[in-house]
Simulated scan of single mutants.
Amino acid sequence: MFQIIGIVLLFALVFGSYIISGGNMGVILHALPHEMMAIGGAGVASFLIANSLPVIKATVGNFGKVFGGPKWKAADYRDLLSLLFLLTKTMKSKGVIALESHIENPTESTIFTRFPKIMKDHFAIDFICDTLRMMTMNLEDPHQVEDAMEKQLEKHHHEAQQPSHALQTLADALPALGIVAAVLGVIKTMGSITEPPEVLGGMIGSALVGTFLGVFLAYGLVGPMATRMREVIDEEGSFYRIIQSVLVAHLHGNAAQISVEIGRGSVPSGAQPSFIELEEALSNIPNEA
């Protein structure tokens, strides 16, 4: 919502101030189609040259994050803590062998299937199951497990951030592409140097629209979108950090309740359940789970 408001304000205030100060929108509108063709076309072309197909697809898919925000809401964090509570409680009371059927086939697990939204995140499920498999193989050194989890998280976060880096690179290129379009306009103007001053003035004004558009798009739209995308992906990454916190706390010998409380401290402040809310969520889990 705030992103849409920001875009409306951006256009209203920039072009509104230009019109109020006596600027002629006709010059901009006349030059807009071919300047956008040059700048936008060159921007899209450079984006395609610089990135692989998976990164291109991910960048397009991640535009929803700019306006929709993180996919994980407060209820999802409670669900994650509840899932980890069930897993660590089972490990404490029945041993790691009791978890084998759950981690080998989570789609049929009575624990995992209680949380359908988390089940749709393949990395989260694989991350949990792979870590629990390490524990079943007697890899119980908390520091080794934490090290292995940290490497997985770093790899996943690096890959998740590639779309925002690609978009930021495009934003950095747009001012220079605007200059390219402006230089072409100046070349065109110089080829018509014998024209009257009023004609040359219009041609120079059209050329400068290219510089304006490059800077405007870079710092007004594309750059802020890249920043917003990066922030959302960072926040979503904390979801997986909670998994690491809880499972490592469990390996240090903490009770299931204490382990998830440690994980609760890693939840982003805006979505963090209170101690009472988490306690109520855990107490509402049926005994048969």
Score class of each variant (00 low, 15 high):
27 V>M: 12
27 V>F: 06
27 V>L: 14
28 I>R: 08
28 I>W: 05
29 L>K: 08
29 L>Y: 09
29 L>S: 08
29 L>M: 11
30 H>A: 14
30 H>F: 13
31 A>H: 02
31 A>I: 05
31 A>S: 11
32 L>I: 04
32 L>Y: 05
32 L>T: 13
33 P>V: 02
33 P>I: 12
34 H>A: 11
34 H>N: 09
35 E>M: 14
35 E>T: 04
36 M>T: 11
36 M>E: 10
38 A>S: 10
39 I>W: 00
39 I>Q: 09
39 I>L: 15
40 G>K: 01
41 G>S: 06
41 G>A: 06
41 G>C: 08
42 A>N: 06
42 A>T: 14
43 G>T: 03
43 G>R: 06
43 G>V: 12
43 G>S: 12
43 G>I: 01
44 V>K: 03
44 V>I: 15
44 V>T: 14
44 V>G: 03
45 A>T: 12
46 S>A: 13
47 F>L: 13
47 F>E: 03
47 F>Q: 04
48 L>K: 13
49 I>K: 06
50 A>F: 04
50 A>P: 08
51 N>P: 13
51 N>K: 02
52 S>P: 04
52 S>E: 12
52 S>T: 11
53 L>I: 11
53 L>Y: 11
54 P>H: 08
54 P>L: 03
54 P>K: 03
54 P>G: 00
54 P>M: 02
55 V>L: 00
55 V>F: 01
56 I>Q: 02
56 I>L: 11
